[in-house]
Structure formats: C-alpha cells, structure tokens
Computed example of a mutant assay.
Amino acid sequence: MNKMMSNKWIIAAYMMPALLLLGSIIYVPIFLTAYYGLHKWNGIQAMEFLGLANYKTLVGDRAFWSSAYHSLLLAVFSCLSLIGYLIISLVLASRIKGAQLLRKIYLIPMLLSSVAIAQLWLKIYHPSNGLLNVFLERLGFADTPAWLAEPSLVLGAIFVPILWQYAGFYILIYYAALKGVPKEVEEAATIDGASAWQMAWRIKVPLISEVLKVTVVLAAVGSLKYFDLIYVMTNGGPNGASEVMASYMYRIAFKSFDFGYASAVSFFLLLICLIVTWLIRRATASDDKIQYS
C-alpha cells in the first residue's frame, strides 16, 4: 500500500478529479470573466473585441471608485465589529447563567435570509411609522430622519443590519475556539493569580490568534463582495450613496446590459479581494507559534 501511494502517477490520478472540479467551477470562470472584460458585449449579440479599453475606462470611473470606497468602509467597520463579537464570546465562554440561551438568540439573524432581514429593517427604518422613528418621537425628537433616503445617513443605516446579520456567525466561531483552550491552561493561570481580565486578554485571546486572523480575512473579503441586503434595501441609492462594488457590477450588467464592462468590474473586484487578503496576511504574519499541551 505504501509503495503504491508513493507512486507519483497514482497520486496524480487520485488528485485529478478534484483538480478538474476545482478548475471548472473556480478557475475557468475567473479566466472567462477576464476574457469577457476585453470585449463589448450585451449578453446576446456577438462580442466585439476592445482590448484593455474596459479596464482603462474602469480606472477613471468615478462611480466605481465611489462604490469601492463604500465597500472598503464596510470592510473596515466589519473588522472593527469583530472586537465586539470577541468580547461577547469571552463573556459567553465564562460560564455565565443563560449562556446557552444567549448563543441561540445571537444565531437567529444568521438563520434568516438576507431578503427577510432587509424587509425587517425596512420596517424599522420607515420614515413615518418605523420602529426607530416612533421611538425617537417618543423621546421628543420632532424632525426624525429618513434613514434610507438621506445620502449622509444611508450608508451607516445599511451597515447596522449587515453587522447584525453576521454577529452570530463570528460569535459562534470565537466561542468554539475559546472552548478549545485547555482547562489545564486556565487552571494554571488561576493558580498564578491571573485576574479575569488577564485570563481573557493575556491567555485566551493569544491562544486563538490564528482563528482571529481567519475571521479578519473573512470579514474583510465578505464585505468587499457584499451585495444582497444592500440591493433589496436601497438598490445602491439614493443617487449611489449606498452603492458597493457588487451592486454597481450588477447594475452595469443587468440594467445597462454591458456585460463586457461588468466583467471588467468583476475581475477588478477579484483583484482587490486578493490584494486585501494578501495585505491582511502580511500584516498579521508572525513566526511565533503559541503552543500548548
């Protein structure tokens, strides 16, 4: 058996089905997207080769860079929100009463579809009878804002349900990682006189640092390509104030029927995601590996 598995041809034969599947659903679409970006195409008629014209237009497209800025803001806020999720996870992992019930409550948004969440928050943000404005009126505010109609407010209003939607996902990841910290380590720290704060930030958090790095990448890249809830709630409006790269790409493709330029936007979005991932990995790279037994 060992002799057979040391044969490179046999190893290649075992790997070939997975490589073919991976290539057909990931790498081939990426190549085709970059190829379509070199053409003018409405999705039906014959493609017209333009070379790098779409990509040159993209570099000077102010609407695209505005949407990219909004996506980057969402990525920054998503990464910052991880601190709050981590604190909640530390509290839940500290054997407080009702921790199991709280974990289930935090998971509820993750179980709902993005469309359902969007409809829920549309009701909350309704300018006349929405829950938020009714509450503000009860507090004495006469001029309540139209949260999704004012360019200065809509982006922040959109970020709130997005961060709320994925809170349970990251809390669950952190909670599972914290529960994986050996009890012997906690007992040794307790014997040495570590306080609850020191136990959390000097012992537990460093031990789950690799999990933290993964969640930062997930939050950043997921925010850069976010689409569905924004599309349902505002469709990028008003006047592009909540437009993100994915919604801009969708509008170019399925409303302007410029699939060539939309493919260029899509490929550029992929490059941005790869660059951001590389930057995060470089910024969080460390040769020091924390080990425990």
Rank of each mutant, 00 (worst) to 15 (best):
Y174V: 09
Y175K: 01
A149W: 10
P161I: 01
R138Y: 15
Y175V: 00
I173R: 04
L155A: 06
I173D: 06
S152I: 11
L155S: 01
I158F: 04
V160T: 13
Y170H: 14
Y170L: 09
F169C: 02
V154E: 04
P161H: 05
R138N: 15
Y175Q: 00
Q165R: 15
L172E: 00
W164V: 10
S152L: 09
A149H: 09
V160D: 02
A142T: 12
L163K: 04
L148N: 06
D143H: 14
T144F: 10
F169R: 00
F159I: 06
F159W: 02
D143N: 09
L139G: 09
P151Y: 01
Y166F: 15
P161Y: 02
P151V: 05
P151I: 07
A157T: 08
L153E: 10
R138S: 09
Y166H: 10
A146T: 13
W164G: 13
I158H: 08
T144D: 07
G168Y: 04
A157W: 01
A142Q: 11
G140M: 02
F169L: 14
Y170C: 07
D143A: 11
G168L: 02
T144V: 11
I162K: 07
T144W: 07
L155Y: 05
G140F: 06
I173E: 05
A167P: 03
I171H: 01
A149Q: 11
F141A: 06
F141E: 10
Y175W: 04
A142C: 12
G140K: 02
L139Q: 05
W164C: 13
F159T: 08
S152K: 14
V154P: 10
I173F: 14
P151C: 09
V160K: 03
Y174N: 03
V160S: 03
W164I: 10
G140A: 09
Y174F: 15
Y166A: 10
L153C: 05
G140Y: 04
P145G: 12
F141G: 01
L148Q: 12
L172N: 07
I158M: 13
V160Y: 14
G156P: 02
Q165A: 08
A142P: 05
Y175F: 11
F141P: 00
L172I: 10
A146D: 14
F159K: 03
A146F: 15
P145V: 11
L148G: 06
A146C: 06
A149K: 13
P161T: 03
V154Y: 02
V154N: 05
L155Q: 05
L163H: 02
V154M: 05
Q165C: 08
A146Q: 15
G156L: 13
F141K: 02
R138K: 13
Q165Y: 05
P161L: 11
A146H: 15
G140N: 01
Y175L: 06
T144Y: 09
E150F: 13
A142N: 10
L155P: 00
Y166L: 08
Y166Q: 14
L155I: 02
A142V: 15
P151T: 09
